[in-house]
């Protein structure tokens, strides 16, 4: 299988879906002429033209809302947020309009829109640009939330998201854009709501998603080599719908849980997972559920300190040893 970057995998997904369905339109700030702020859409304007690859002004509430309205008429917009952090200025359009319009119309309307872009810290861009809103988004029934960790997953999940008839929030990661992974040349889809066990193990289950999967896998390697402990890493891939069964099956095998996430701790995705595990697998647990999150402050600018604010392999290792103790 060819090795391609996460960025290329997303571009391939967008391109294949544009070629498959004339209703698919890619829109966002700098996606066309500039070739994408993070080069995800590089070359697509030249290939597909300005009707399919559309530059928008810096106007998130306006253009995201416009995409929602167009999707009600059957256009399938894939809207890029340069950073998911900018969702706050389009909050009403995403979480009042896209999330609610089906319900408020008694099921008469659906919004086949995808909103995608990076949602992560770790690039020293400060508190305004480092939000990870997957918990906030998933708190709104009506939307689906996807956070892929690898090139393979990103491509397969994005293609599914574009074909989905519900609004899908697709959260990428600027640090992962350059990560390479094996991606088959033949077409494939990954269903939403299906977790992936990225590493098998018997002593501890790490439940994680997004870039934290990579940190967890590194920590798991060290735990095996240096501590002789066998760690299973479950990548959720999708937050809503959520494959809790795969998590519970892993807990039944290892009896110990560490949740690793690039979220602030209060009411995070991990909070929900921990609730569900204690509720549905209480008797399987040999100890309390542990959780490693981003340190609970706004994202710091200072580069060396930001590394320590976010999950990283050392922090995961330390938290895993505590969970195994």
């Amino acid at each position: 299988m060819p090795l391609i970057t996460y960025r290329e995998a997303i571009r391939h997904a967008l391109s294949e879906e544009i070629e498959r369905d004339p209703n698919v339109v890619v829109m966002g700030e700098e996606v066309a002429q500039f070739n994408g702020a993070y080069k995800v859409t590089e070359g697509m304007l030249a290939k597909y033209g300005p009707t399919r690859i559309v530059d928008t002004p810096i106007s998130e509430a306006g253009f995201i809302g416009m995409g929602v309205g167009a999707s009600m008429l059957g256009v399938r917009p894939v809207m890029e947020l340069m950073f998911w952090s900018f969702y706050s200025v389009a909050f009403d359009q995403i979480l009042n309009n896209a999330a609610n319009v089906r319900y408020m119309s008694g099921g008469q309307i659906n919004c086949p829109i995808v909103i995608r872009g990076p949602a992560n810290g770790g690039t020293n861009v400060g508190a305004t640009h480092s939000h990870t809103p997957e918990n906030v988004l998933a708190n709104h029934p009506g939307v689906k939330v996807v956070v892929p960790s690898t090139a393979y997953d990103a491509k397969g999940l994005l293609k599914t998201a574009i074909r989905d008839n519900d609004p899908v929030m697709f959260l990428e990661n600027t640090i992962l854009y350059g990560e390479k992974g094996e991606v088959p040349t033949e077409e494939y889809l990954i269903p939403l709501g299906k977790a992936d066990v990225k590493r098998q193990g018997t002593d501890l289950t790490i439940v994680t998603y997004g870039r934290s999967v990579l940190h967890s896998l590194k920590a798991a390697e060290i735990l095996e080599k240096e501590h002789g402990r066998s760690v299973e890493v479950v990548d959720l891939r999708t937050i809503r719908p959520l494959d809790i069964d795969t998590v519970l099956a892993s807990v039944a095998k290892t009896h110990r849980v560490l949740i690793v996430e690039e979220q602030k701790p209060f009411a995070s995705v991990g909070s929900q997972i921990a609730y569900m595990i204690q509720r549905e697998a209480f008797d399987e647990l040999d100890g309390p559920i542990h959780r490693l999150t981003t340190v609970d402050s706004p994202a710091i600018y200072s580069p060396p300190v930001e590394i320590e604010q976010l999950p990283n392999p050392n922090r995961v290792l330390k938290a895993a040893l505590e969970a195994l103790a």
């Binding site: 939403l192 709501g193 999708t238 959520l242 494959d243 929900q272 509720r279």
Partner: peptide, 10 residues
Amino acid sequence: TSQGRIFFDR
């Protein structure tokens, strides 16, 4: 086409 849990009342 999706799998998994989509409502979280339990």
